[in-house]
């Protein structure tokens, strides 16, 4: 078995302590996924596993044997940016860029969550399909901290992304 990362298979590390994040950053030299706190508090290490967003820092790589991981490096196709990446540039959704990969990966999954009708902590009606409002987006993105203060641009970019009809 192996872990698929952006479509390529990789061996599960022998040292069970190695997190998915350290596998990416240290072993595979793919540092696009960031380490902000290594304790599940900042969201900088957000990756997709079988399409769902998780925190790579809290994930022991061994547990992801057989799973399919997508990182920020796997988002763009060749030379062209993923639509959300382009929207982050357009709306200036970052300054230093360190939380950015996590914000973007988180928001890619967020769109899927809207599409399957997942409620959030600010949804007034748990039965109804959630509105794609700024408040809904902010609540759902609250696991991704930004310290530079690019929050407005980040939410602008994501609001544009989740309201697009198709990719």
């Amino acid at each position: 078995m192996a872990i698929s990362i952006n479509g390529q298979p990789y061996d599960v590390p022998k040292d069970a302590r190695v997190s998915l994040l350290d596998l990416l950053r240290d072993t595979l030299d793919r540092p696009g996924t960031k380490k902000g706190c290594n304790q599940g508090a900042c969201g900088a290490c957000t990756v997709l596993v079988d399409g769902e967003r998780i925190l790579a820092c809290l994930a022991l790589a061994a547990q992801y044997d057989g799973r399919s991981v997508t990182t920020i490096e796997g988002l763009a196709r060749d030379d062209s940016l993923h639509p959300l990446q382009a929207l982050f540039v357009e709306h200036d959704g970052f300054q230093c860029g360190y939380c950015t990969p996590g914000q973007i990966m988180s928001a890619v999954a967020l769109r899927e969550e809207f599409e399957r009708g997942s409620p959030s902590g600010v949804s007034p009606d748990l039965q109804a399909s959630p509105e794609r409002s700024r408040a809904e987006i902010k609540e759902r993105m609250s696991g991704n901290l930004c310290r530079c203060g690019a929050h407005n641009g980040i939410i602008d970019a994501i609001a544009a992304y989740v309201s697009e009809d198709s990719l």
């Binding site: 540092p31 960031k34 990446q85 982050f88 970052f94 990969p101």
Partner: peptide, 16 residues
Amino acid sequence: RPRRDGPLKVRGEARF
């Protein structure tokens, strides 16, 4: 003007 390092940062290709 958008940031010159924007594409690198959003791709996760800016090395810290």
